[in-house]
Nucleic acid binder design. Structure first.
Length: 418
RNA sequence: GCGGGUGUAGCUCAGUUGGUUAGAGCACCUGAUUGUGAUUCAGGGGGUCGCGGGUUCAAGUCCCGUUACUCGCCCCA
């Protein structure tokens, strides 16, 4: 039985699960539009260099998680592991650098070659927001507020915590990095193996180590606060004030670091404790250097990405299907008329299914199976009178309705259901 | 890349110290019901016990390997 399976870490989204995904995407899209972010899409694969150069040569994503392969012409291409680099590339490719600020919303699959586990897949789905061309902290606040509103609309507000940190500008970061490396070099033998690797690749990560031995060292490590220059401190202060004004709660977490090289200043993460080892639901930050680094004009950017799969797992309620009604024709004449009646109702905005075959009990069963709210039963008697028996399958009540009034009758119930 | 757990019907799972023909619930199909579903009753179909090897008179059960899933580490949404 286990022969025909999807590739590891990928899965089929059958209707019940797809509906949750769709609900997440639609909810987010509508709110993003209220903030002035329009949906766009970039290809799901790009030249490998688009990701390799920008994400950082030592980042985990680049070193071990990319789906990279050679195309027929020998070009190295990569399935996108995230979308910020792709959006930045599109921004440059399409000459939008004169059209700032650019405000984009996107939704789609990303690919990372990881060991799958709860809430983590090789083909994952993300929505995201990117704001390009706004250097002020207002941008950070706007993007964060939109994310918070989306999570609230999804009913997840009380199940996530906003963690906030600043990575400072490059001057501050370089200064702190140097100090950190010096400090941990002095205790190299005491560091865990993981952290010894981090020391070279991303020393800031050591601050977030879960290893007990590391934590002892971290407790006495230099604090970033002492190395943030004035500009970085001011910027962070304005972001915090902006959030305060909007009543958006956050927790400062000075160990919150980013895995990707292009981040600076604000870093944030909405986290949950309900997804096993995965905590991040929506995360992002500022990436002022990215566009310039890719060869475009220096353009500041800030944005975030959120895991659709993870948010779908967290939803408290199943998104409702639209109200469905089922036609149950009896006899040749009724069957012949059924498709036309169904189409007419559909034209008027109703969802209608047909009980195609079998005797009456069978057809009723089918109507029930497909989740119809109403069964519309009609045979020769009803046709002679121009009526249809409309049975409410949830209450068992049944009444005759003139065929001409059918749409009106059903639409009134559809409104009621909202 | 590294550790732990689990693979028996479409789904959720029983299966004794190894012992004849591998079970249950749900789902599915048929009938009781040729104009009334969801409830009830009767019957029916459905299994290379993940795969390969080994031990044994005998393996779903024990051993080894392998593969898939799953949970965790790393890292990330």
């Amino acid at each position: 039985m286990a022969k025909l399976q999807p590739i590891r870490g990928t899965r089929d989204l059958l209707p019940a699960e797809f509906r949750r995904h769709h609900f997440v995407i639609e909810t987010a899209r509508l709110i993003a539009e209220r903030y002035g972010y329009d949906q766009m899409a970039t290809p799901i694969f790009e030249l490998t260099s688009v990701f390799a150069r920008t994400l950082g040569d030592t980042s985990d994503v680049v070193t071990k998680e990319m789906y990279t392969f050679e195309a027929r012409d020998g070009e190295s291409v990569t399935l996108r592991p995230e979308n910020t680099a792709g959006v930045a590339r599109a921004f440059i490719s399409n000459g939008l650098t004169q059209a700032v600020p650019c405000k984009f919303f996107y939704a789609g699959p990303m690919f990372r070659y990881e060991r799958p586990q709860k809430g983590r897949y090789r083909q994952l789905h993300q929505i995201g927001l990117e704001l390009l061309g706004v250097p002020q902290p207002t941008g950070d606040v706007e993007v964060l507020a939109a994310g918070a509103m989306i999570l609230e609309a999804l009913g997840l507000k009380d199940r996530v915590t906003l963690e906030l940190n600043t990575l400072g500008d490059s001057e501050s970061r370089d200064a702190f990095r140097t100090v950190l490396i010096d400090y941990f070099q002095g205790h190299f033998e005491k560091l865990s193996e993981d952290s010894r690797n981090r020391l070279l690749k991303n020393p800031l990560r050591i601050l977030d180590s879960k290893d007990e031995g590391d934590r002892v060292l971290v407790a006495d490590a230099p604090s970033y606060k002492d190395y943030l220059n004035q500009a970085s401190q001011d910027f962070f202060g304005e972001v915090k004030e902006g959030l305060d004004r909007l009543g958006i709660a956050y927790q400062l977490n000075d160990r919150l670091v980013r895995g990707l090289d292009y981040y600076c200043y604000t870093a944030f993460e909405f986290t949950t404790t309900e997804l096993g080892a995965q905590s991040a639901v929506l995360a992002g930050g500022r990436y002022d250097g990215l566009v310039g680094q890719m060869g475009g004009p220096e353009t500041p950017g800030v944005g975030w990405a959120a895991g659709i799969d993870r948010m779908a797992l967290l939803l408290n309620e199943e998104p409702q299907k639209p109200m469905l009604s089922a036609l149950v024709p009896l006899g040749k004449e009724a069957e012949a008329k059924a498709t036309a009646i169904a189409d007419d109702l559909r034209r008027q905005g109703l969802a209608v299914d047909l009980a195609y075959t079998g005797n009456l009990p069978k057809r009723m069963k089918r109507a029930d199976k497909v989740g119809a709210k109403f069964a519309m039963i009609f045979g020769d008697d009803e046709l002679a009178k121009g009526e249809i028996q409309v049975k409410d399958l949830s209450t068992g009540e049944q009444k005759a309705v003139a065929i001409d009034d059918l749409a009106r009758e059903l639409l009134s119930h559809k409104e009621e259901a909202r």
